[in-house]
Simulated scan of single mutants.
Amino acid sequence: MCYIILAKQMDNYDILHELDQVARNAARPGQPFTTQAEHMPETLNIIKANGGPTDTCWSLSFMNNIDEALADKFDLDKMKYIIGTPNLINYTACHDNKRLLARLNERLSGFDDEIFRRMKLAAIILTTSAGIPLIWQGDEIGDAISVDETDENKTKIKRPMHWNLLKNKRNRNLFNTFKYLFAFRHKTDSLRNGEVDFCYENIDDHVLVYRRGVNIIILCYFSNEKRINYTIENISTKANTIWIDILTNEYFIVNDRNTLVLTLN
């Protein structure tokens, strides 16, 4: 991997293209290789798929918009952008910013079950979006010890893993969720390749559903309001099917009208 920082300040695609070629030629034969541009905010023009010089670009939009959505400021179009755009490096936090758990605590007040449920939703979206998932070490165990964003030396501070957090049930469950989802993505081709198919959306109810291939459906609910017998139409590519929640092992039936009825909470 070649990581090109200050791509925005450099503002020269010819130089970025040359750096990409030099780094690629220096890689070992047969070694997986990619170039990433740190361009804040991201620009899709810098990506090779759009005629640019690098393979990928860091997505500041993912971090900002997942933060807003999980803090009850749901924007449907922004969520569809960060979920459906390929060739972006998606992350919820990095060494330049406060951790997502810390930001949610500031917005919602309190490290309770609700905040950890929202962290799990962030992990689900991170690992099922079209982009490339990246985590800042510690996010997966629910570390909320964060950075002073105004500190010019913040990237030089050593930040050890606080493994003792795994003694807490909430943190252990969050870690197991991250671990399972990354393993599932690794073995599932349709999560790493192909387009995102948005099959249902309701901006008033804060619901967004999308498919990755024919066998994976992701249902996102950005609210803590309980909705009983909620109906989602055209959710599957085939009616009369049984679906299993891979995190809870619950069974759900899509009826002969290709409709799913369930409780959202």
Rank of each mutant, 00 (worst) to 15 (best):
A144W: 03
E114C: 07
E42P: 06
H206Y: 09
M119G: 01
L262V: 15
G138Q: 06
L70F: 06
A69T: 07
T85R: 10
L108S: 06
L100T: 01
D55Q: 06
N258E: 02
D14H: 11
W243T: 00
Y230T: 13
L100F: 02
C220H: 06
I232M: 13
T241Q: 07
M10I: 10
C2T: 11
E225I: 09
I244Q: 11
N176A: 11
E68H: 10
N249K: 14
P53E: 02
I82Y: 00
K154M: 07
E225F: 03
I135L: 13
E195M: 09
D77Y: 11
A130T: 07
T54E: 07
Q31I: 11
T85Q: 11
R103M: 09
T128S: 11
T188R: 07
A102R: 08
H95T: 11
F74N: 08
M40G: 00
Y230M: 13
T231A: 15
H17K: 14
L19F: 11
N258P: 10
L174C: 06
L126C: 01
I4Y: 05
R257N: 13
T177L: 12
K154G: 00
I216A: 02
K169H: 08
K156C: 11
E68A: 15
E233M: 10
K98P: 00
K226D: 03
N249P: 00
F184K: 09
N12G: 04
T237V: 15
Y221Q: 09
N193P: 00
T263C: 13
F62D: 00
Y3Q: 09
I124A: 02
P160S: 08
A144H: 08
Y180R: 05
